[in-house]
Simulated assay, not measured.
Amino acid sequence: MSAEILHHAGDSPVHRLPAQVKIVAALLTVIGVVATPREEFWAFGLYLVLIVTVWRIARVPVAHFAKRALIEVPFVALALLMPLFGGAAGALAGWNILAKGTLGVLTSLTLAATTTPRELIVGLQRLRTPAVLTTIATLMLRYLEVIAAEARRMRLARISRGHDPRFLWQVGATARGVGALFIRSYERGERVHLAMVSRGWRGAMPDRGVAASPAVWLAGLTPVLVTAAVLTTALVGHA
Rank of each mutant, 00 (worst) to 15 (best):
Arg68Pro: 07
Trp95Leu: 15
Pro117His: 13
Arg142Met: 11
Val33Asp: 07
Arg155Trp: 13
Ile159Asn: 07
Met140Ala: 09
Ala58Val: 08
Asp164Val: 07
Trp169Phe: 04
Arg118Thr: 10
Thr134Trp: 10
Leu70Ile: 11
Pro165Lys: 03
Phe167Pro: 00
Val122Gly: 03
Ala148Asn: 05
Arg59Lys: 15
Trp169Ile: 02
Ala112Val: 02
Arg38Val: 09
Leu98Ser: 06
Phe75Ala: 07
Gly86Ile: 04
Val52Cys: 11
Arg126Gln: 14
Leu156Met: 10
Lys67Asn: 07
Tyr143Cys: 12
Gly94Cys: 10
Arg59His: 13
Leu46Ser: 04
Arg128Leu: 12
Val34Met: 14
Arg155Leu: 12
Thr36Gln: 05
Ala137Pro: 03
Arg155Val: 06
Lys67Glu: 05
Ala113Ile: 02
Leu103Gly: 02
Pro37Phe: 06
Leu70Asn: 09
Val62Asn: 01
Gly162Asn: 07
Leu156Pro: 00
Ala69Arg: 00
Thr114Ala: 09
Pro117Thr: 09
Leu46Tyr: 03
Leu92Met: 15
Ala69Thr: 05
Ile97Gly: 04
Ser160Gln: 08
Val34Ala: 13
Arg126Leu: 15
Leu80Arg: 00
Val76Thr: 06
Thr115Tyr: 01
Ala88Gly: 02
Ser160Phe: 09
Ile136Ser: 07
Ala131Ile: 02
Glu119Cys: 01
Leu144Tyr: 14
Ala112Arg: 05
Pro61Arg: 04
Ala137Glu: 01
Gly87Phe: 08
Thr134Gln: 04
Arg155Ile: 05
Gly94Gln: 06
Arg59Phe: 12
Lys67Cys: 04
Gln125Val: 10
Val105Cys: 01
Arg128Ala: 14
Pro83Gln: 05
Ser160Leu: 14
Ala91Gln: 15
Asp164Gly: 01
Ala58Gly: 06
Thr102Met: 14
Thr114Arg: 08
Ala89Gly: 14
Ala149Met: 05
Val73Tyr: 04
Ile97Thr: 11
Leu111Met: 10
Trp55Gly: 00
Val122Ile: 15
Glu145Asp: 15
Thr116Pro: 03
Ala58Asp: 11
Arg166Asp: 15
Thr107Gly: 03
